[in-house]
Every structure is written in C-alpha cells, then in structure tokens.
Write a protein that binds this DNA or RNA. Structure first.
Length: 836
RNA sequence: GCCCGGGUGGCGGAAUGGCAGACGCGAUGGACUCAAAAUCCAUUGUCCGAAAGGGCGUGCGGGUUCGAGUCCCGCCCCGGGCACCA
C-alpha cells in the first residue's frame, strides 16, 4: 500500500539512533527508581516469528512507557542458545552447532531490532558463551556442595536400536524411537538430579504473594501436588518375626487413612523391591511376566491399556497376604502396574469402595469391597457411574463398618485413624508431593558440560573452580548414532583426578537447557562478572523482575525451575540473601493460531513478520498486535488479518499527515480566545491522556488504541476548519506522546520534526482533571426499563431534580399514557427509571 | 474423568449492575478522477414501517433486581491444562 511517509527509512533511522545513542542503556547507580522488564529468554531458531513480535511488542511498550514515567528501566536481551535443533542440524549438515547457532542468533537479533524493540545490548548473554558456561558450572558445583545436586539411579527411556538414552520428546506417541523406530524401554541409569523437592513447600506457599495469573499459579500448585495423609506398615502374614525369620513389613501411603477398615487387598508396584520376597513359587511365573511387561512398556502403553478409561488394570496375585492392622484380618497382596514406584512408598492399601482405581481393579480381579462411608440413598442401585449400580463413592458422608470410627465425618475420622497409627507405633502422618527431583542429565553434546570427573579411588570429584569452564571439544564428528559425541571422544573423556592425579573419566552428560534459563535474569544484572555468576548486591538492586512477559507454555517447567534456582542460589550463598522469588509480576500473552492450531515452525504455518516490515512497517504491525484484542487472548490469523494490519497502517498515515502536514496543506489557524469548539477539543485531548494512561495500567492496549483512533476521528474535521493553533498543537503533541510506546518510530520522527528533540525522553503526559471532568452528562430516562428519552444534565444534578426532569419529559409523559408512576428510581446523573 | 478459560453483528472485539455492539475490518452508496489507486463523506444487529417510530436481540432454561452481557442456580457447546500421584 502507498504510504504517507517513508516508513522503512524512518524506522531504520530511529533503530540506529536508539542504538547509537544508548537511549535504553542503564547502570545500577542510576538515580531514577529501578524497574526491570523482561521477556522470556528465546531459543534462537532464526528470524522472529509472529509470536515473538507479539511478545516483544508488549515488552517494548512497557520499557518505553516506564522510561517516560521516570524509571531507570533494565531491558536486557539474550539467547537460550543450547538445545537439540542445533545438534540435529549438525548431524544433518555437518555444521558445528556453534556456527549454526550463531547464525540463527544473528537472524533473530536483526529481526528483533527491526521491530523497533529496544534493549541494553551491552548486557546480551548467550547460554553457549564460555563465560556463561563457567558460571553455570560454578553454580552446579555449589549446589553439589550443598547436597542440592546428587547422582542417582533412575529409569530413563532407552532405545535398544540406538544403544542410547532418549529425551522424552524423542519418544514418539506410540512408544517408539523417532530415529530407529524401535520400541523404547525403561532402563535404569546413573543420572544427575537437583533436589527441587526440598523446596516443595516453599514453592507452594510463596505462590500466594505473587502477582501472577491465577491460571499459572493453579497449574504450579497441581504440579507440586501436595497431599496430606499417613504412611503405615502392613505386616506380611506369617512373617511377624515370631518364627525367627526377620519380620517382613510393607509400608503404604494413603490420603484416606479413615478408609482403612475397607481395605480388601494391597498392591505393590512392579518395580517394588519387595516383590521377590512377597511372591510365592506358584505365582512366580505370572508375577515375572507382569514385571517384564511393565518394564517393556512405554508410559503411554501403560496408560492406554491399564490407565484411566483404559482396558482394565493389569495385575497378578503374589501369593502373600498382609494383615490389616485395623481389623487384624489378612488381605491378599497384588502386583499391579497402576501403582507407581515413584510416588509415596510404591505400595498401597486398596479400598475399592472409596477409590475409583481400586474399584476398577477389584472388579477385574473378582475382589470384594466393604463400604466405610455411607453413600447416598440408592447408590448401589443407580447412583454409580453413568447412573448404573454401585462404584466407588468418594464423596462426603458418615463413617460405617469402621468400628471406633463409625458415625464420624471423614475429616475427623482421618485424624482419629492417624492418631491411632501413631499411638500404636505402626505409622505416622505424612505429606507427599507429586513433584519429583529435577533430572538434569542429558546425553547431548550441545549443552553445558556437567563439571565432575569420576576417579576409581575418589569417586565423584568436582572439577576445581580454577579449572572451569569445562568446555566440549570442537574436534568431534556428528554422526547419526543418537549418541552424544562427547561420550566417545577419548581426549575429552579421559582425564586425571584432581585429588590424586590418577586416571579418571569425565562426566560426558550435559545439563538440561532449562538450567540455563533458570538464572539468566540474574546474570543480566551483572553480565560481565568474571569472578562470580553475578554480584548479589547488584542483582538485588534490580531484582525481582518487575514485569516478566512470556508464553503460557512455560507456566510450569521454566517458571518453577527459575523459582527453585532463585531460592537455592540464595541458600548456597551465590544469590542475594533475601531474594526468594524471581518474578514479581507475570504476564502470559496469548498465542497466535492459524486454522485452529498454534502457529509454529513445526506445524509449517508460520507467517513471516518480515513481509509486513517491508510493506506496512514495524509500527503498523505492532499497532495491530496491540489492537487486535486483549493481550492475554489468543489471536486467530485469518484471511482478514492483512486488512486489519493495513487498517493500522492507514491510521498511522492519518496521524502522520496531521502531525507533519506538507507545506501549504494545513489550513490557517487562529490564535484568539477559545471558542466552545476549541475547548471541546482540549477536553478531548485530556480525556485521551486519561484513558490511555488508565488503559496502559490495566493492560488494555486494544482500548487504548481505540481511544487514539477515536481521537483522530474527532480531531480531523476540527483541524480542517478554522482551528485554534495552540489547541491543535496540544492535541497532536499529546497524541504523539501517548503513541510513543506503541508506535515508537512514527512518534519519534514526527516529534523530532515538530520539536527537534526525542519524544521518548519526554515525561509521560498528565491529564488536567478539570478538563477530564464532563460538564454535561447524557442522562437516560427509562420507563419500565426501556429508554424513552435522553437529557443533557449537569453531572452534579440531584436525585429529586433528576426525577423531576425525567417526569417532565414529553416522551415519558407519552409513554406513561396517563398512568401513575409507582416508583421512580433516580440514579443521577446517569439514569432515571420510571416504573409503573 | 478433574481443574481452569470462553460463547456478544458478516469478522476481531467494546461495555465500575444503568443508552448493548465503542474502535477497527469487511460490505454498500456517494464525492474526487478520463479511469483506477489513494483520500474524504454517509450507511451498516435484526424484524415491521414510506417515514416518524416501534418490536426483538449478548449459547439455552430458570432466578435475584426498578434494571442483568455483567450477579446466582441448572444445562449445552468450544478452547486449554492435568490425567492411574493412592
């Protein structure tokens, strides 16, 4: 489309100016109050896509707005530059991941600059930078020293064809390897973990005070999954120690100790260490078969065959029984894969009457049930699932069939049962979490090496700090073996023990890339520190991040890990002591959808922002993203979208013509006394400032844009006539000021031509309350709730005067048709409702 | 299955319990033009009506209220998250 001004030239000019003049570079000793705005650390996948544009538009608006409000705004940018795509590209093309990644970073950076988003680029960081790696490794070693990092055996996805471990995302939906197609199995391997579970309670409790979307907080709460209950011992029948053999007890966890009288069997997970002890010879074959099947199954198979809504739960009787301590009666012990080794004790007491999963299993295996909570009347006839008979009843009710618990409600019974277990010394109160420790080992090349060596004599030995960073060698071959080149690079793998100098091997795993993004926001505050990851005092000056902006897809993992890291860093002495939370305010913007699915590279439905930059320009594209709807909502990219974007361009053209009229284009202005018409425009100007200011505060950018459009619609006819010069100037300048955070290039250029200085260095305008106040209000007159008249009234009109004015209205008299008003609801100055 | 969101014109969306549909897109008509583009003006929820004007309208059914898109109860549909966590 033909434009009113040289969009590309002006946009390039200002991008250069902001960079050259360091307009948005700040230091910690800046006297202005600090404000930290951050958009999520992006993986550099090439030029920015529309999701980035949306993200950075909101972030940039805040940076510019906050600066105009008088803050020293920290606005850094960096790249989450480790990750699988670079490694896959290396395998495919032979290009080193660093070369590949640096090229993608250059593309992303260039396209972000071309959006007009401003950052303090002196603070740029990249995960794969040796200095960042060094700091990452320092942190790792410190966590290790404080027992927050540890090595343990854990089941991982193992591909027999590739002879390697696979990341979850490399396992296809059908449980096969994405490369070889072989079925993936579980295999135990030594892996590194971070002890995030130590912080489970704090991570849960501290959510309360965060100004985050409730949705995200809920997701984190569910993920942490705190549940209170009890753990207790079940003695294996015949193994109470009275025969001289060591006693055998099975420990179970339950959130419903009150239902213990209803236990009709017990279950252990296939991986449970007591399975062998429990299994009698005649049941060995069936149990072994079940265990083998569970080990060979992917999680997905285990879910789809025996999971919720699956084909029925698989299990095998062990031949043993355990004694229910509440009843003294023995119940059979089963092995079943619906019980998970990774949660609780890996064993449960099963109560089919009050647990839907136990009910399913009991039905499939012909096991009985005993109700311990009185279900609603008719439950066993038609109250169950789908209105059929029976089923587990999990609702509230009176305890029955439970001896000394009978008649109690569930919470009281839970408490009594737990007290009894404790007094008998067979169990205790227990809190369990769904949250697991964070497995950080990745069998990858393109990641931060884990800085430890293994010595035959000294075991796990941390690499001394003065030998950091441990860097991956460059002379590696990227082969499609599915194995990290580090593992087979003898020059890297073979080393000496820092303690004894004897032969040792290096850890060849690298860290999960979520580690890199768990503290980058702290590094930004002190990005060139060569001795520590960052200076805690400097970090505390800026932290916590005042406004964090990103996609909802990071609601759980990234945000939880970053919270954990912030707490852990403080506790190990690397972070600021009082800093417990990294992000005070979080905003999650909506995603861009096309044809009903998320717009993404993998779906191949990307729309390139660059096509718009060369036609309508960055300002119009930014304006579109702000205008299209509430920032938190998803955006549908449709056939009409281009028209809307062009509409945004048209609007900017109008602003331009108006703010920078061509010679002779502007009609003559008067500069005498203000006419009522002039005054009305002044009022509109101050109302614009007021509206946009309030809309910015509540993240209602779409209505802020609408206010600006309305304002121009009003201004245009006025300025075409005999307008007052000062009124027009005030109107145009105010408009440019409020547009400056949204459409920075246009605002900067027009302002410079009018005043010769920088619009973005100006203070945010303040509306004059006297001019914002209305001097007449349209009062709606209703009869029985239907609008019959509208009157212009003084905003200060009283209740009685309003009612009188309403009753005097000819339209009301006509509508009443002689009827006597029963009631007059007078709500001055907005409305009067006459009720008959 | 459970937990969140959300259903308003042809479309994106506005609306502290008080004029439903701001603003924009699209569409229609007009001005300008040899013509087109651009620009400008007007109309645009729906039905009845020549008009003035009136009826009906925020997924469905109830309720509270002088008054409900907004609050309450019960449904339906769409989107997202979690999903054997005992």
């Amino acid at each position: 489309m033909a434009r009113a001004y040289d969009v590309t030239g002006i946009e390039k000019k200002w991008q250069q100016r902001w960079a050259d003049e360091g307009t948005y570079e700040v230091e910690a000793d800046d006297p202005r109050p600090p404000w930290y705005v951050l958009t999520m650390y992006p993986y550099p996948s090439g030029p920015a896509h529309m999701g980035h544009v949306r993200n950075y538009t909101f972030g940039d608006l805040l940076v510019r707005h906050r600066t105009m409000l008088g803050h020293a705004v920290l606005s850094p940018f960096g790249f989450d530059s480790f990750g699988l795509p670079a490694e896959n590209a290396a395998i495919k093309t032979g290009t080193h991941p660093r070369v590949f990644t640096d090229a993608r970073i250059a593309e992303l950076k260039e396209s972000i600059v071309s959006l007009g988003a401003v950052y303090d680029w002196r603070r740029e960081i990249r995960s794969h930078d040796p200095e960042y790696i060094r700091a990452n490794q320092v942190i790792f070693l410190r966590l290790l020293a404080h027992d927050l990092a540890y090595r343990a055996n854990a089941p991982v996805n193992w591909c027999p064809g590739c002879q390697t471990v696979l990341a979850n995302e490399q396992v296809l939906a059908d449980g096969t390897c994405e490369r070889s197609g072989d079925p993936v199995v579980k295999r135990d391997l030594e892996q590194w973990f971070f002890r995030i579970t130590r912080y489970a309670d704090e991570l849960l409790a501290d959510l309360e005070a965060l100004d985050w979307p409730e949705r995200v907080k809920t997701m984190q709460r569910n993920w942490i999954g705190r549940s209170e209950g009890a753990e207790y011992d079940l003695t294996v029948a015949g193994r109470d120690g009275s025969d001289g053999r060591p006693p055998l007890v099975l420990r179970v966890f339950t959130t419903r100790p009150d239902t213990s009288f209803g236990m009709t069997y017990a279950v252990v997970a296939p991986e449970h260490p007591m399975v062998d002890d429990l299994t009698t010879p005649e049941h060995r074959a069936a149990v072994d078969e079940l265990r083998a099947r569970a080990a060979a199954s992917s999680d997905i198979e285990r879910m789809s065959e025996s999971g919720a809504g699956g084909l029925g739960k698989r299990g095998a009787f062990t031949g043993s029984s355990v004694v229910n301590p509440f009843t003294g009666l023995p119940v059979p012990v089963y092995v079943a894969d619906y019980v998970l080794m990774g949660y609780g004790t890996g064993a449960i007491m099963a109560v089919p009457a009050e647990d839907t999963r136990d009910w399913e299993f009991a039905q499939a295996h012909g096991l009985p049930f005993v109700r311990t909570v009185r279900p609603p009347d008719g439950w066993d006839e038609h109250g169950g699932p789908e209105g059929g008979p029976g089923g587990a009843y999990t609702g509230p009710g009176e305890k029955i069939n439970s001896a000394w618990l009978d008649g109690l409600d569930i919470p009281t019974a839970k408490e009594r049962a737990t007290e009894w277990l404790e007094s008998e010394g067979i169990g205790e109160r227990k809190v369990n979490y769904r949250l697991r420790d964070w497995l950080v080992s990745r069998q990858r090349f393109w990641g931060c090496p884990i800085p430890v060596v293994y010595c035959a004599d000294h075991g796990i030995v941390p690499v001394p700090e003065d030998q950091l960073p441990v860097l991956a060698p460059d002379d590696v071959a990227f082969l499609p073996t599915g194995e990290s080149p580090l593992a087979t690079h003898e020059g890297f793998r073979t080393t000496t023990c820092p303690v004894c100098g004897g032969p040792a091997t290096r850890e060849t795993d690298t860290m999960d890339t979520f580690v890199d993004s768990s503290w980058y926001f702290l590094r930004f505050t002190d990005p060139h520190n060569k001795t520590e990851p960052f200076d805690p005092a400097t970090a505390l000056h800026w932290m916590p991040v005042d406004q964090y902006i990103g996609g909802i897809e990071h609601a759980i993992l990234h945000l939880l890990y970053a919270r954990f890291y912030t707490k852990a860093l403080a506790d190990v002495g690397l972070g600021p002591a009082g800093l417990r939370e990294p992000f005070a305010r979080l905003f999650t913007q909506g995603m861009i959808r096309m044809d009903g699915t998320k717009m993404s590279k993998s779906k191949g439905n990307l729309v390139a922002p660059s096509t718009y930059l060369s036609t309508v320009g960055a300002d119009a594209l930014r304006l579109f993203h702000l205008f299209v709807g509430p920032p938190a909502d998803d955006v549908d990219w449709t056939a009409q979208t281009d028209s809307v974007i062009e509409g945004c361009g048209r609007y900017l053209d109008r602003v331009w013509r108006f703010a920078v009229p061509e010679d002779g284009a502007a009609p003559p202005r008067h500069d005498g006394t203000l006419t009522p018409e002039d005054l009305a425009v002044r009022k509109a100007t101050h109302r614009l400032i007021d509206r946009v200011t309030r809309d910015y505060e509540r993240w209602s950018y779409n209505t802020a844009v609408a206010a600006c459009m309305e304002f121009v619609n009003l201004l245009q006819p006025y300025a075409r006539g005999d307008a007052h010069a000062a009124v027009v100037d005030e109107a145009v300048d105010s408009l440019l000021l409020v547009l400056a955070p949204m459409t920075p290039h246009l605002a900067a250029e027009a302002w410079e031509r009018r005043h010769g200085d920088h619009v973005h260095l100006h203070a945010w305008p303040v509306a004059d309350p006297a001019l914002v106040a209305e001097d007449t209000v349209t009062m709606v007159i209703q009869v029985n709730g239907k609008v019959r008249d509208r009157l212009d009234v003084d905003p200060a009109i009283g209740e009685d005067a309003a009612a009188a004015a309403a009753l005097a209205s000819p339209a009301v008299v006509a509508a009443l048709a002689g009827a006597e008003p029963r009631r007059v609801v007078s709500r001055p100055p907005r409305l009067v409702n006459v009720v008959v």
